[in-house]
Amino acid sequence: MALLTLEQAKSAVSIPATTTQYDDELEEYVEALTEVIEAFVGPVTPREVVEQADSRGQVLVLLTTPALSLTSFTPVATGGSSVDVAGLHLNGASGTVTRLDGADFYGGPWTVTYQAGRASTPKTISVAARMLLQHWWRTRYGAARGNPGGGEDFDVNEPVPGFGYAIPNRVLQLLEPHRRPPVVA
Rank of each mutant, 00 (worst) to 15 (best):
D101N: 14
E152M: 10
T74M: 14
G146C: 08
A103M: 05
S72M: 07
S120D: 12
L62P: 01
E38H: 09
R170P: 00
P122A: 05
W136G: 07
V61Q: 15
E152T: 13
P161Y: 06
P75C: 07
A129K: 02
P181V: 02
A93G: 12
P122H: 05
V49K: 14
L175I: 06
A12T: 03
P177L: 05
S120H: 06
E7N: 13
T121G: 03
E51N: 09
L133P: 03
E25L: 14
T18L: 12
S82H: 10
R179F: 07
A67G: 08
H178K: 06
E51L: 08
E38D: 11
N147T: 07
T139A: 00
Y165T: 06
D24A: 12
L26R: 09
D23A: 10
L172K: 11
M131H: 10
D104L: 04
R56S: 14
T124R: 08
G151K: 08
Q8M: 11
G107W: 01
G146R: 03
D84Q: 11
S126D: 11
Q8C: 06
G162A: 09
P148R: 07
F105I: 03
Y22S: 11
P109N: 05
I37A: 05
V171F: 01
V112K: 00
L6R: 11
Q134W: 11
H89A: 14
Y141T: 13
A53L: 05
G142D: 08
H135V: 01
H89L: 10
S55F: 07
V41W: 02
Y165G: 02
V41T: 14
L60I: 06
S14W: 04
E27V: 09
L63H: 13
N157M: 01
G117M: 03
Q52F: 05
W110S: 04
G150T: 05
V44E: 06
Y22W: 15
L33V: 10
L172C: 11
S55C: 07
D54K: 13
G151S: 10
V127K: 09
Y165W: 04
G107M: 03
G107L: 02
V76Q: 10
L4A: 10
A9C: 13
T96D: 09
Q173N: 12
S11P: 00
R130C: 04
L62D: 02
R130S: 09
L63C: 06
A53C: 15
G108M: 07
Q21R: 13
V61S: 15
T18M: 11
Q8W: 03
M131L: 15
Y114T: 01
N147L: 04
A39Q: 13
V44N: 05
A17I: 11
K10Q: 11
R170G: 00
W136H: 08
A143S: 13
V156N: 02
H178Y: 14
